[in-house]
Design a protein around this nucleic acid. Sequence first.
DNA 1: TGTCCACTGGAAGGGAGGGCTT
DNA 2: AAGCCCTCCCTTCCAGTGGACA
Length: 412
Amino acid sequence: MNLFEEYITKKRMRLFTGNREILMPSYIPERLPHREKEVSRLGEILAPSLEGVKPSNVFIYGKTGTGKTAVVKYVLRDLERVTTVHNLNVRSIYLNCETVDTHYSVLQNIGNFFMKKWDERIPFTGWPMEKVYETVKDKLNDFGGIFIVVLDEIDKLITKSGDDVLYHLLNLNDELTKARVSLIGISNNIQVTQMLDARVKSRLSQERILFPPYNASQLKDILMDRVRLANAEDVFSEEVIGLCAALAAQEHGDARRAIDLLRISLEMAEREGAVRVLPRHVYEASSQIELSCVAEAIRTLPIQQKLVLLSILLNSEMGKINQTTGEVYATYSKIAKMVGMQPVTQRRVTDFISELDSLGLISASLKSFGRYGRTKVINPAIPVDEAKEVITEDPFLEDMKNIKLPKQTVLH
DNA sequence: TGTCCACTGGAAGGGAGGGCTT
DNA sequence: AAGCCCTCCCTTCCAGTGGACA
């Protein structure tokens, strides 16, 4: 049977044939339940732009899945509709600092927003900063209106590149003759603002909006709305929707998680050929989300970090609990040589350990053993066998699949 | 109370890689 | 082709540290 014929037959058998995009967290509906206050607050802040006045800069913070990005995109979409109809000179750009995380790339993206011809574009590297800055200024002056720059996950930008970028962006207005730039910073980590220079900090957060987590009943409303919008009431019972909401509420009220649960439990039910989504599909979806997040995090790790993680897993497999940095480094050096790689220094490995810790793949905490030194105490935070399997998918590390450590490498 | 261990983590800088300018 | 610039990944150097032990 033709591969795609099969797909078409399957599609006919699908439980839900409506628009699946509605069941994605990235979909912005026409109504955002329980975020009316935040929407109107941001709307009020940005409204002066319609009269050609620069709106205040805004700093938005709240945990993941509390609707920060959705509200900002929602408000900017409305703003764009109005400015298009009334032909007003207001534009905005959305940048996610997960990927746009350097001084250069932020300015490059802003500059390229106004570039109509491909060959005029600022390359992703190569130009002196000064030239990029001047080009951005020229382009903004040519545009001559109000330009709103949204920096989502701004904490990533600050931790990686410091506050230089923000300093430059905030100073841009002093050097612009016609245009005006406003900043909207979005962060799920309030701590980062402590790292900012006091002047940058006060100018960035002329206005602040805090997004509280959703509770279970609010999440349920959000899911109900989506289900109605997708015309999928006959697929999801109220019980199932409530369960998705309850599970996500346990995770600090994460709407993104709740919507993912809804969609993936639907996929689970379809795969099984069920007529409706059942609570057990939701539980299955929940554990699948957890596992696939871990697997994805591991897959995207650079090879050296994979080796460090593998060392920790192997040590743990040997029954070693509470590993020290020194022990991890010893194992790492051995297996790096085994796969024909030059081991990096211990200093570098301590950075890798911190990164693995912040990704939640391991737990590492600083502990002092008195005269026996001070080190990090490290344990895997994920299932060892599954994690090993994902790591050894890497063509470089295939040979490590069945490796067992000789005892003396961990026991001193 | 001072010493000392086994690191931690900041700072500075090297060099490779990608790209532009002259 | 040579000279720059920027980012990324890494090394080298080193001051700093919590707490057991003498």
